[in-house]
Simulated scan of single mutants.
Amino acid sequence: MYILIVVTFIIAACYGAPYKVKPFNSCGYEACNLGQPDKLNVHLVAHTHDDVGWLKTVDQYYYGARSDIQRASVQYILDSVIESLVQNPERRFIYVEIAFFWRWWNQQSQEIQDTVKQLVNDGRLEFISGGWCMNDEGATHYNSIIDQHTLGFQFLNDTFGECARPKIGWQIDPFGHSREVASLFAQMGFDGTFFGRVDYQDKDQRNKTKTMEMIWKASANLGQ
């Protein structure tokens, strides 16, 4: 089992192009807009990157306290995202850190929860990675990586069902990447992973040789 690695922020994904009529109430790849085959289709993917504790505590990040340290308030991100998705059916959003989403979800009314469930079922709100947080890689024990992803996966499955199952890993901020994490993501069933921090010399070379996308054989023991 291999996993597709993409080391770029210009993502040819399935968001925002209004050219494909998708089946009603479809999610996952069925909800993708493929764009126009005779044109270069550029898709801008709006996503979160909310540290579950870094310069501030988790509570301070969620509620927006201590703005003198960093201006960040996750609850308002989620409030505005849901409102924006409802206003325009062509919009898409991907959410990553389940620790914050779980907290926000438990504070919402039944009406808002029903709206969010419909957005997930329509493929307009998608969860990727699906862990409680975006874990570091170099010094993190594999048991902790598995446990924190299991916690997030369980919440998504119990709350939204199959349409919320993450299909892509999302490691855009760890300082360095490990073979073991790529192996774990493949075994979790991810179709690929995006990572964003890469040595500038490696990135420059991949840009020149058009090898920003690659297949990473993370473990010789995984087989096909």
Score class of each variant (00 low, 15 high):
M1V: 12
I3K: 01
I3V: 09
I5E: 03
V7A: 13
F9K: 04
I10L: 11
A13M: 01
Y19Q: 03
Y19L: 02
K20V: 06
K22W: 11
S26R: 00
Y29S: 11
Y29W: 14
C32K: 11
Q36Y: 12
L40D: 00
L40N: 01
V42H: 02
H47I: 02
T48A: 05
T48I: 08
H49A: 03
D51A: 09
K56L: 05
K56N: 06
D59Q: 04
Y61N: 02
I69F: 15
Q70P: 03
A72Y: 07
L78R: 04
D79H: 14
I82F: 12
E83V: 11
S84R: 15
L85I: 08
F93W: 13
V96W: 00
V96H: 00
V96F: 07
E97I: 06
W102K: 15
W105L: 13
Q107R: 02
Q107F: 00
E111D: 13
K117A: 03
K117T: 02
Q118R: 15
Q118V: 11
Q118L: 11
R124G: 03
L125E: 01
E126H: 03
F127K: 00
I128E: 01
M134P: 02
M134H: 06
D136T: 05
E137V: 00
G138W: 15
H141G: 09
Y142P: 05
S144P: 05
I145D: 10
I146T: 06
I146V: 14
H149A: 12
L151G: 12
F153D: 02
F153C: 00
E162R: 15
A164S: 13
A164K: 04
K167C: 05
G169T: 08
G169W: 12
W170K: 09
D173W: 04
P174K: 05
P174E: 10
F175N: 00
G176E: 10
H177D: 12
A182D: 07
A186M: 08
M188F: 08
G189S: 08
T193E: 07
R197Q: 10
R197Y: 10
R197N: 11
V198Q: 12
V198T: 13
Y200I: 10
Y200H: 10
Q201L: 14
D202I: 08
T209H: 08
T211Q: 14
E213G: 14
M214Q: 14
M214P: 03
S219V: 11
L222E: 03
L222C: 06
